[in-house]
Amino acid sequence: MSDPVSALGDANFEGFAAVHERGPLGMISLRAKSDVKGLAKAIKAAVGTPVPAPRRIVVKGEKAAGWMSPDEYILILPYDGTAAAMAAIADAMGSDHHLAAVVSDARAVFDVTGPKADQVLRKLMPVDFAALAPGELRRTRAAQVAAAVWAVDTGFRVVCFRSVAGYMMGLLSHSAKPGTELA
């Protein structure tokens, strides 16, 4: 089998912050109500984290679980781990009403890093970054497309749909152009 190819194949841009499109990342969209019995077990089995609180993401190494809506979670893991995780979810949820779908290929993932990484995003998202709570996963828009964003060690991770990866790269590069810092 050929290697999976991300939308932009590891694109990079160096401005006043660094923009890096990450290779394919495993993602599962899990829909279930928070009071469903098997949920905690399913998330634990799939990515090893507890159920995230509303609007939060719990990161554990390469894996993470994020709260997307009152009945939707995003599970993040290595690309080739999704089949096993799907099986573990099915096992844990049993007959509880839920929907799990692999969406690894439907997404593009960008890391925007550096001390001024937030300024890149402040140009694109109607989000008060100063008020972003620790561990908060914010769903919003970046200019004209939907995006999810959360803080990582050295900056932020931005996720959008795969088809607009080129647009997102263009936005982030334009906003990170050297000399265009906001402060």
């Binding site: 509303p54 609007r55 809506s69 109607p126 914010r138 769903r139 828009r141």
Partner: peptide, 10 residues
């Protein structure tokens, strides 16, 4: 549902 004070464009 999520408590975000969303602006109209969202």
């Amino acid at each position: 549902y999520c408590g975000v004070k969303a602006e109209e464009t969202e």
